[in-house]
Design a protein around this nucleic acid. Sequence first.
DNA 1: TCCGGCGTTGCGTATTTTGCAACGTCCGTT
DNA 2: AACGGACGTTGCAAAATACGCAACGCCGGA
Lengths: 254, 254
Amino acid sequence: MSQSLARALRILVGLEKGPRSLDDLAGELGVHKTTVLRLLRTLEDERFVYRDGLHRFHLGARLFALADSALAQREIRDLAAPHLQRLNRSTGQTVHLGVYEGGEVFYLDKRDSGQSIQMYSRVGLRVPLHCTALAKVLLADLPDERRREVVQAIDYTRFTENTITDPEALLAELARVARQGYAMDDAEHETFITCVAAPIRDASGRVAAAVSISVPHVLLSRAEVLDLLPELLTTARTISADCGYTEIEGNGHG
Amino acid sequence: MSQSLARALRILVGLEKGPRSLDDLAGELGVHKTTVLRLLRTLEDERFVYRDGLHRFHLGARLFALADSALAQREIRDLAAPHLQRLNRSTGQTVHLGVYEGGEVFYLDKRDSGQSIQMYSRVGLRVPLHCTALAKVLLADLPDERRREVVQAIDYTRFTENTITDPEALLAELARVARQGYAMDDAEHETFITCVAAPIRDASGRVAAAVSISVPHVLLSRAEVLDLLPELLTTARTISADCGYTEIEGNGHG
DNA sequence: TCCGGCGTTGCGTATTTTGCAACGTCCGTT
DNA sequence: AACGGACGTTGCAAAATACGCAACGCCGGA
């Protein structure tokens, strides 16, 4: 809609991959460097971008401030925090909180396991949609049409031999997830990690977020991870309750 | 320079304080809502903004992704990480890593103390410039002229009775900090917290970042916090070395 | 000292953006 | 059930704005 703004945003997105020179950016956007320079200057004025000494452009400090307050504005994060903490302590495993927004799923919070093995994940990182328990739970609750759109648009990169690699299989999996009320990632993303995830619902009854537990095979087997399920589900239900969700017709748990 | 972009960025900055309706934003910017709407739509296309159900605008998911990769691009963060971890473990206190950029100082990393008292700080948050050890260390190394500009522009909000509240006093303090090689915040920001900070230098010899330790009075006295100084300085020097800094003429530590 | 790369600026053109006014819709009220 | 208001949305015409070109200047290497 707004050309110059759209170009500026693409500059920022381009900078996501690393610092760039003016010419680099102009080349990537297919726009004259004069134009890029002026956009960059405006971005620089507001600290969205800064140039190092001299002449390479980086993402700037204001992004941190914005991300920080965006994070603080997600009230579900605060609501969930103590429960994530407790789940993390009692299981000793890595715990994630994730949300869906506009075709993406990303981490809103994370608690590391005490173990020396740390997962490569960070608050704000987007998670693959076809091979993570978190995403499955979130996608499973989308309105039918939207879910189909999203599932079609996925890039089905194969990460392991268990990775689901086509839309039909994923839709079937999502249907199962919706039915059983939780999702599993059985070495579908990383060969050595198993995850389980459960939905968090808000007052409207829709899935507003998801919690997951991730465990490396060296610590627990697939079956042992499933043993953590009741505790995960309880945590998810507790957070849901805090979000104003009230279970109506028999969810098997009064 | 670029009007529409500048307005869009101000929209984002406005959204920092919380979700807004279209009219709110139009009012704040002093621009007709038609214009604001079109900017918002472009921002929405790129996920910098999203509207909840329906018609309130929030900061969007892309900011998380950008902030995350911006963070990852600050190599000093990775270089410092293990050392922050060690310092945090051995002192048991809250440890921060901060940097200066374009008139602001903000946290690049944080390690919580094991204690139940958690500090209100978060990666990305801007820190006050006139009453924190971290900022003092960073400002102390700025080129004279720049330092004076920044110091003049500070809003000297008084937080405690120890808060420095005028430019002259701060400049004097910064001179002392530069001389002694570390900074202290003796209940200048929060009445019940003492901090010490030390500079991290890169290959150019300039201060590239700063580490700090923050301790509530209930845990350690001012004197006891000063006892942590040698360890803090050692940590800072180690990180500096990792950044390529080589101490030349007698810094008392060969 | 010369050359090449790269960031920067002035300027004229026309594309893009802007504000207005009118419309539609949703929600709360009577 | 009908009405009124608030708010987001669209079409359009005017003009301000952003665009690309070409030329300049700076810095580093040859």
